[in-house]
Design a protein around this nucleic acid. Structure first.
Lengths: 115, 115
DNA sequence: TCATCTACCTCCTAATGCGAGGTAGATGCT
DNA sequence: AGCATCTACCTCGCATTAGGAGGTAGATGA
């Protein structure tokens, strides 16, 4: 009954932002997306499969991502994801939300309203 | 069935940080805590009662806050909250978590691993 | 044949923000 | 007195979502 890590709660809502971010410039398949996020974040984030795949499906259902199956030389088939125009817009929205949110927290934690 | 605001998800896990923050220097009662957070964040955050009170109770149960009832001149009794040493430590922990988390997101969103 | 690796997937649980609803005292209007 | 309104507290139930556990399937190699 130990309280869960703070991190786990903070993560909520950021998965789409992170996924869309790493797909901004290239298409990638699931496992690769997780790896990219881990790399880019310097190991700070490592989305588990239990949260990554559902998030990918949700983004695809929303029309933010487009995907197709491809054979692999060495292993099971892969599902490659690519960002759509709609996904680009969603990414912009997420970035803006995040920026304003982070600003709000910083401002609140920093000190009194004074400014 | 419109998708919930991104903000609502991002908020998860930050309530303790925000509450402890506004209580760092003064004692306050529930309503006042919500107002302070609203003020300090420049209106960005306005925790609802449904999330604020449970959070206060959890922090109190954890020993991070100490509270007592006091009469009010003009209205119902108020429950004043004050931060404990343990709460101070928890605040520091939350601040550190937040800082590292925000850094991770910024780094990931900013650009490729290069650096 | 069997272990191992990659890569996909889903089910269930836990955490938590919020809306809705509820209690109660004080004030002020008619 | 009766009633609305404001402050201030509280709880219940829903929806979202991260993650662990578990499951499928193809390829490789001992």
């Amino acid at each position: 009954m130990r309280r869960p890590s703070i991190r786990t709660q903070l993560l909520k809502g950021t998965t789409p932002l992170l996924v869309l971010t790493v797909l901004r410039d290239t298409e990638l398949y699931g496992y690769e997306i997780a790896q990219r996020i881990r790399e880019r974040s310097g190991g700070a984030f490592a989305p588990s499969e239990g949260s990554l795949y559902p998030a990918l499906h949700a983004l695809e259902a929303e029309g933010a991502l487009q995907a197709d199956w491809r054979e692999s030389d060495k292993g099971p088939k892969r599902r490659y994801y690519r960002i759509t125009d709609k996904g680009g817009a969603l990414l912009a929205e997420h970035e803006a939300e995040w920026a304003s949110f982070a600003r709000g927290v910083a401002q609140t934690v920093a000190g009194p309203t004074n400014v």
